[in-house]
Write a protein that binds this DNA or RNA. Structure first.
Length: 804
RNA sequence: GCCGGCAUGUCGGAAUUGGCAGACGAGACAGACUCAAAAUCUGUUAUCCGCAAGGAUGUGUGGGUUCAAGUCCCACUGCCGGCACCA
């Protein structure tokens, strides 16, 4: 009787060994490979099996790279500023630092159970003053380069979190964190000029090995469009209204103009008779919530009484106010061409405005238009000097033509807005600025960083637009670093994204108190080669990080301007029926018990086996049994075979080489779930061979090597038991010999009229004639009274006989 | 509304990219071992007809291309995700 597979003992043993003798060492000669996980927020709920999956995926990849001879940078840290810790503090009157540190301790314990090759010497924590000193330093640099600026403007405000939000944090009109409807609040804000990088953020995407989906989301978010600004004279006045359009080719079809009700000129345009109606409309619009305005697509509007003059043909067009025009995009006013724009068409129909077709559809002018013709293809009509031109061509050329005529200019517009960067909350990095009545906003001198987050009596957000820090007079009142006079500190804090926008740079030089990261280490270890994390950060964290990296590149702090060469988005693990795991739903599965019962290796393998890593998967505890049985079988197989002296047959060589190819290909394509299936298949095949002659040690050792990234403990143990030297992770990833990949005999299915009827076995180099004659023989009983009209043979694959 | 993605047994999922649909695993059922249970091992398990050999049907729906379609083309339905009046 052999000893049973005792995962507890084995895993404990290797955990200790690896702690004493790390397997991933930097000898200064190896090439680096940086494999990064999205670092977790240390929540009080701890990790669930979904978090585990991402970390297992990245660890399999890291260990795979390790076995290819790389020094693998695989760090872990804590994204620890943020609302939950603060809310906990408010409720329990505990300093957030205390609860945060408790949570970190617990999550670190859980992460260690994964047995990933994290280098804990590199650990970072965004709430550590030694870390956020550099978060603040970056802000100061941005300020000095004109990229951080103050502005008073109506911003997105979450009434529940009592703080301002960035555009990216508003999802369908609701707060990304708590789901409350977002309102507008006019506040003085710190902004980051991310729009200055719009083109580079867009153009840089094309060279990244990222999922197309994420690239597309960022592309759409940045939303670049090319067009023209056109100046319309207001009839009878000295003023001009400038509109932005992507369809300057349709300028002759403009029959009215619409301005956003929030536009500062709006009130002014109202003529005596329309004043009351205009003011009423502006007031009513101001009462509408973001969500109402988004959902209600029914067109409303009001005529101002004023007219604008179309510079192309001198025609007078009425000016309306309508809330379907956005105040903060383009110029906040649009020229309306109902014949060729859906929204304008709808508005024109509702308000009885004329519709002039300027592009022929199918070569014709439509007598009674029922819907707008929005495509830029067709010949221009009703367009004066432009008649006869092709619209798609004119669309591109018109901006310059307009520019030459002097009533407009070629323009590019973006949906991306500058980043609202200040938060009116406690648990974040203080913005390192001092307001001096004489000198204005002055950055805190770099040698005085970090500006420590002070102790405060109440963490409660005030809701007034001031952060709780504003209540600490002793902290707020300071002296101006510039003139030495009395001055006040900035009391807003930074958003949670501040630290996560650059943390990956810090891991490789986390103790440096002179620089954010030394030039030498940055050149040697950065950027990130592979980034693994959820898709939920597609436009938040991943866009911000790219912006920070480009900025740090521009000021010479680093030499690259894209942080993450390759990105892998793992799917979410959900509870039953695809319901997201959450404490409130009570469907959270903790990995702790599973590790205890089945072991780390079993859970690692099962996390991958549940489905394709990039797709969501429903968790089902029962499946882990199958994985545990598989590891047990493999363990037993090695016990039975390790002391035998089995010769290396051609059959074993073929199995071994095919195994290497199958597993390697599947890791390379991230098809980790089918890699596990293949392991199981080959394990069964080896068990059968074991009964029949045995399995040689070389084959078992190769299997062990391939399994090592997935189930490191059992692999290390088996590697040793099979008599191999050193750690399996010091061994080199096996390579296959193509000459052993093909079987000597191939099985060829025989179809009659496309339906499988028999399978014949043929030598792999059999001729077409031999195969066909054998095939006919195999199905002869089914050929009675039928004639073969066509014979198809795909070499080595299939025979199809078409019969009548 | 626009743009993506997906749809395969009881369940999770596989299918070398046009070549035996259902690998691998879960679950279920039957058998072996056991006083018994657990564990383990063996077998069966898409559906329908049939005692069986065998046959027919079958990858969301309807059509098409092909010797051959889960895979390609056209139309549609459902679910998921992103954007949402961006002129």
């Amino acid at each position: 009787m052999t000893v049973p597979y005792n995962h507890r003992e084995i895993e404990e043993k290797w955990r200790k060994t690896w702690e004493e003798h790390p397997i991933n060492v930097n000898d200064g000669k190896k090439e680096k490979y940086y494999c990064l996980d999205m670092f977790p927020y240390p929540s009080g709920n701890g990790l669930h099996v979904g978090h585990w999956r991402g970390y297992v995926i990245s660890d399999v990849w890291s260990r795979y790279k390790l076995m290819h001879g790389y020094y693998v940078i695989h760090p872990m840290g804590w994204d620890a500023f943020g609302l939950p810790a603060e809310n906990y503090a408010i409720k329990h009157h505990v300093h957030p630092e205390i609860s945060t540190n408790d949570n970190i301790r617990n999550i670190k314990r859980q992460i260690k159970q994964i047995a990933a090759i994290y280098d804990w010497d590199m650990e970072v924590n965004t709430t550590d003053p030694k870390f956020y000193k550099w978060t603040q330093w970056i802000f100061v640099q941005m300020f000095k380069h004109g990229l951080a600026y103050e502005k008073k403007m109506p911003i997105n405000w979450c009434p529940s979190c009592k703080t301002g939000l960035a555009n990216e944090e508003v999802v369908n009109g609701r707060c990304e964190r708590c789901g409350s409807p977002v309102t507008k609040k006019n506040l003085r804000q710190w902004m980051l000029k991310i729009t200055a990088y719009a083109d580079r953020l867009l153009d840089g995407l094309k060279d990244l090995e990222w999922p197309e989906k994420v690239k597309k989301m960022q592309t759409d978010w940045i939303g670049r469009s090319y067009g023209a600004e056109v100046d319309f004279q207001v009839d009878g006045r000295d003023e001009k209204i400038t509109v932005y359009t992507t369809r300057p080719d349709t300028l002759y079809g403009c029959t009215f103009m619409v301005m956003a009700p929030e536009n500062p000129m709006a009130k002014d345009l109202a003529t005596e008779g329309q004043k009351e109606a205009v003011e009423k409309y502006i007031y009513e619009t101001s009462l509408k919530s973001n969500i109402d305005r988004m959902q209600d697509h029914e067109k409303t509007g009001v005529f101002t009484g004023s007219y604008a003059i179309n510079p192309m043909n001198g025609k007078k067009v009425p000016i309306y106010l309508a809330d379907y025009v956005l105040a903060d995009y383009g110029t906040g006013a649009v020229m309306c061409v109902p014949a060729h724009d859906d929204r304008d068409f709808e508005f024109a129909k509702k308000f009885g405005l004329p519709i002039i077709q300027v592009i022929a559809k199918d070569g014709k002018e439509i007598p009674d238009m029922q819907e707008a013709y929005t495509q830029a293809s067709g010949t221009m009509i009703n367009s004066g000097e432009w008649n006869g031109l092709e619209s798609s061509k004119l669309k591109k050329e018109a901006p310059e033509m307009i520019e030459k005529k002097g009533f407009g200019r070629k323009t590019t517009n973006y949906k991306l807005r500058d980043w609202v960067f200040s938060r009116q909350r406690y648990w974040g990095e203080p913005i390192p600025i001092i307001h001096c009545p004489k000198c204005g906003a002055v950055p805190v001198p770099e040698d005085q960083l970090p500006v420590l987050l002070p102790e405060v009596e109440s963490y409660e957000p005030t809701g007034t637009g001031e952060s709780p820090l504003a209540a600490i007079d002793s902290w707020v009142n300071t002296t101006c670093p510039c003139c030495g006079g009395p001055a006040k500190r900035e009391t807003n804090t930074m958003p949670q994204w501040a630290g996560s926008s650059w943390y990956f740079l810090r891991y490789v030089d986390n103790k440096n108190d002179k620089e954010l990261v030394s030039k030498e280490k940055a050149d040697k270890y950065l950027p990130v080669d592979m980034y693994v994390g959820g898709v939920e950060h597609a436009v938040l964290h991943l866009l911000y990080s790219r912006f920070y990296t480009k900025f740090l590149h521009d000021i010479g702090a680093i030499d690259f301007d894209e942080p993450f060469k390759r990105l892998f988005n793992q799917g979410m693990i959900t509870g039953k029926n695809g319901i997201k795991m959450s404490k409130s739903k009570g469907n959270v599965i903790s990995p702790d018990d599973l590790v205890e019962d089945y072991g780390c290796d079993s859970l690692r393998v099962y996390e991958l086996f549940v489905g394709p890593p990039e797709l969501d998967a429903e968790w089902d505890d029962r499946g882990i049994e199958g994985v545990y049985r598989f590891l047990t079988k493999f363990w037993r197989l090695v016990q039975e075979q390790k002391d035998r002296d089995v010769p290396e047959t051609r059959k074993l060589l073929q199995l071994r080489n095919k195994l290497i190819k199958d597993i390697t290909d599947r890791i390379e394509t991230f098809s980790l779930n089918t890699a596990i299936s293949k392991f199981m298949e080959y394990n069964n095949a080896m068990c059968n061979l074991a009964k029949d002659g045995g399995v040689d040690k070389k084959t078992l050792s190769v299997y062990t090597q391939l399994l090592a990234p997935f189930a490191p403990h059992i692999a290390e143990e088996m590697w040793q038991e099979l008599g191999n030297e050193g750690s399996v992770f010091e061994s080199t990833w096996p390579e296959y010999d193509p000459q052993y990949l093909e079987d000597d005999e191939v099985q060829i299915p025989v179809q009659l009229n496309g339906k499988a009827r028999a399978v014949i076995e043929m030598p792999k180099d059999a001729s077409k004639e031999e195969v066909l004659s054998k095939a006919k023989e195999a199905v002869s009983s089914k050929l009675d009274g039928k004639t073969i009209v066509k014979e198809i043979y795909v070499p080595g694959k299939i025979v199809n006989l078409v019969v009548k």
